[in-house]
């Protein structure tokens, strides 16, 4: 359905996407990456909104930039928040349906809005909508012509938990029906709920791809760094080295220890007994690299893509 071959995109001196190749078939695929990783640029390339500096993009066998007719079969939720502010949600989605030559565009718009839990009879303009409502209007306009390929750029941004669950369920249903659904996100736990295949993009490069659970395990198995604050850092450090859960250790200042471990769970179990043994008071334990940026840095760090 989607074939990306050695695609690079640069804007002046800035490389947004670098030599990326992958294929996406029916079902839900998540495009995961931190902010600035190149996800939106990649999705724009897939829809033809921008052309690759190098390489080729094929969606349903064609280049969408050259064949506008292809858009009959593609739906996109773009990242930008702007909508036609003076329109009601129904008018906006109905316009999309008309431009796709959908039979009975009004009815199609009402159905699409109902699918995303919005009131088709709402007479307010979208300018007065909350961010969550605007996101759902964007999803409705992408769904209104019943596309085979659905490309969604951070569609869950700004939604409350109930709305997120509703859209995740919708995307999974569309995937189960045989549509190709590509969803981008920078939230690891969000992607987990898609229960899908994952493409991990970091610094414009494809850092990993495959089953989510395998990639999650790879992420969890990486070395972790934690900071401990204690009144006896040297004594506690010596005791921790004896537990066998620490692969690196450094004393910082008069009351801090920074440790590297490959086994976070084992370390957490060992740290309190070690403190008791060393006669040290454990004042604080803080993970230093649990944010997604650190995970991605690890994935694209020395040793290359994993």
């Amino acid at each position: 359905m989607i074939e990306v071959t050695q695609v690079s995109k640069w804007f002046g001196d800035v490389v947004a996407v670098s030599d990326v190749s992958f294929g996406v078939g029916p079902g839900v695929t998540a495009l995961l990456g931190p902010n600035g990783a190149g996800k939106s640029t990649l999705l724009r390339l897939l829809c033809g909104l921008t052309r690759p500096s190098q390489g080729s993009v094929r969606v349903l066998g064609d280049d969408p930039r050259r064949h506008p007719e292809l858009f009959r079969r593609i739906g996109l939720v773009p990242q930008q928040e702007a909508l036609f502010e003076g329109m009601t949600a129904r008018t906006f989605v109905s316009l999309a349906a008309e431009l796709h030559a959908v039979t009975a565009p009004g009815a199609a718009a009402e159905a699409a809005l109902a699918t995303v839990d919005l009131d088709p009879g709402d007479t307010r303009t979208v300018a007065s909508y909350s961010k969550g409502m605007r996101q759902r209007v964007k999803v409705a306009q992408a769904l209104v012509h019943d596309p085979e390929v659905l490309i969604l750029d951070e569609p869950l941004d700004g939604l409350d938990p109930r709305q997120r669950l509703g859209l995740i369920t919708l995307f999974r249903r569309l995937g189960d029906e045989g549509r190709t659904v590509l969803v981008s996100s920078h939230v690891l736990d969000e992607v987990e709920r898609f229960g899908s295949r994952v493409l991990v993009l970091a610094q414009g490069r494809l850092a990993a791809e495959g089953d989510f659970h395998a990639i999650r395990q790879l992420m969890d198995n990486r070395p972790h760094r934690l900071r401990l604050r204690t009144d006896a850092p040297h004594a506690l450090g010596a005791a921790l080295l004896g537990t066998g859960t620490v692969v690196g250790l450094a004393v910082s200042g008069t009351d801090q220890l920074v440790v590297d471990t490959l086994d976070v769970a084992g370390f957490r179990l060992a740290v309190a007994p070690a403190a008791r043994q060393a006669g040290a008071r454990l004042l604080e334990l803080v993970p230093l690299d649990d944010d997604l940026e650190s995970v991605f840095r690890y994935l694209v760090g020395p040793g290359g893509s994993r």
């Binding site: 829809c47 506008p68 858009f71 796709h100 030559a101």
Partner: peptide, 15 residues
């Protein structure tokens, strides 16, 4: 300029 052109451009309509 405001990005809404994408909503028109992404339709199967001759330019």
């Amino acid at each position: 300029e405001d990005g809404t052109l994408a909503y028109l451009w992404l339709r199967p309509v001759a330019r």
